[in-house]
């Protein structure tokens, strides 16, 4: 029995932990999660091919593809459909909408990856994956998860914003406030000691109080 399973219960991945390895058939051949090491990866699921909301999402992901590439981010989709269905659908999107889908899509017919990542929400559907997004960093660590219901298409600006926020955090060792966008002030992590708190107020940050300081990045 693997670490992920204890007495038949699958242990779902959590933030800050290694994303579970898998090998899967995709529209770009058989891929392993570890093939993406060194790049960020957005692994996302959609309920089904040839459905309208999913089509708008695939177009949305294709439209931010170049912006993600600049940020060293790869994309990989997933649904419980066959690879032939995926191929047919992405060809249809190109034919009907003029948008080429440049990223691989996992054909998870046996639900192996979907189960490993908890992409199926039985309360919504036992046969389809919900709209899940897993952001995995270049070391294979799961850094963010977002779940949307079947009826609500995802927001591509938010996906780009999460990537920007995580990469800014890693580069500058800061946090980002609500609704933060690149270029806006960031949060300086709270000081861990009373002495550091007093020092903090003399460091020229924009402080409302010792625990709430912002600064502009260069």
């Amino acid at each position: 029995m693997g670490e992920e399973q204890v007495e038949g219960i699958i242990r779902l991945p959590r933030l800050g932990e290694k994303a579970p390895e898998f090998e899967a058939v995709t529209t770009q051949g058989k891929l392993k999660l570890s093939d993406f090491r060194g790049s960020w990866l957005i692994l996302f699921s959609h309920p089904a091919d040839f459905t309208p909301v999913c089509t708008t999402e695939f177009i949305g992901f294709a439209e931010i593809f170049d912006e993600l590439q600049v940020r060293n981010v790869q994309l990989m989709g997933l649904s419980i459909d066959s690879v032939y269905s995926h191929i047919s659908w992405v060809r249809n999107i190109e034919e009907k909408f003029g948008i080429k889908i440049p990223f691989p899509v996992i054909a998870d017919l046996n639900k192996e990856v979907a189960s490993l990542y908890g992409m199926i929400m039985p309360g919504e559907s036992k046969t389809e994956t919900s709209r899940c997004v897993f952001v995995i960093d270049p070391d294979g660590i799961l850094r963010a998860m977002i779940y949307y219901p079947l009826t609500t298409g995802r927001n591509m600006d938010e996906i780009l914003r999460i990537i920007d926020a995580l990469q800014t955090t890693d580069k500058h060792h800061v946090a980002t406030p609500a609704n933060w966008k690149p270029g806006e002030p960031v949060i300086v992590p709270p000081p861990p000691t009373q002495e550091a708190a007093e020092e903090r107020l003399k460091q020229g940050f924009d402080c409302r109080d010792w625990y709430f300081c912002k600064k502009k990045l260069d």
């Binding site: 058989k30 891929l31 570890s34 093939d35």
Partner: peptide
Amino acid sequence: LPLFRVRSGLRD
């Protein structure tokens, strides 16, 4: 080419 495609192709 993306590195992931190269790794997977080399494996094939």
